[in-house]
Amino acid sequence: MSKVRRKLGVAISAYTVVIVSMIFFILPMVWIIYCSFRTQASIFTGKVISHLNEFTLENYETILSVTDYPTYFFNSFKIALSVSLLSLICSIVGAYGLSRFRIKGKNAIIMGIFSTQMFPQVLLIIPMYLIVFSLQMLDSVIGVVLGQLILVLPFSIWMLKGYFDNIPVAIDDSARIDGCNVLQRLYYVILPLGAPGIMVAGFFSFVVSWGDYLIVSIISQSQRTATATLVIQRLSSALLIRWGQVAAAAVLTIVPTIILFSFVQKRLVEGLTAGAVKE
């Protein structure tokens, strides 16, 4: 009897946590999606429920056809894809090296990579701006990509090293006996077995780059490289804010990250924490 009662108590408290969390974490997103379909007048009534005739696609039409938003959205895509690709190449190869080879001062290298998380980005960005300037890459996609690369590379390497460490070395060894060289082992053993971790690392890079404000705000100088993130910020700090349109632009900027998230969701935690779980 008391056991049943205790179980019931646990279930009630667990569901309480779930309900409170849903309200706190999910409701704000539902609310902005809901409001992105309301007219300005409807939002300004200060009521939660709108009449049916107050719903509209106008906000999205304006953002997509009147403003330059599509250009910025496309810029974001170009930049985030390049960052993911470059960071994957560097971090897969690097993590493979750290996970499988004897390297002099390996621990120092790992510690060094980890300790870059300590460096204030606002301090790094000053000389970075001057480097990008002297390379004549200011306001270029490649300039932004190189800048953002350092945001994701340390964590990517650390994460993938943890992931690769969990792949049994015996598989590598048998592949070597079968005559596979370093690159073949990377290609035939590490890539397929590490695929879930690699997917998460790619996702992480994409999301960080997509959401970056600091580096874009310094290196981007014009429409050519401005990103969606930069632009929703500008929209939302205008003097007269059209909240319906801001909501629509914000929703459009959120959507790609949520879609990608739904693909990697199951693997996300396992991948992100690979470096921390293994002993």
Partner: peptide, 10 residues
Amino acid sequence: VIPVAATVIL
């Protein structure tokens, strides 16, 4: 996963 800029707008 959503951009911080979007969180702030929310």
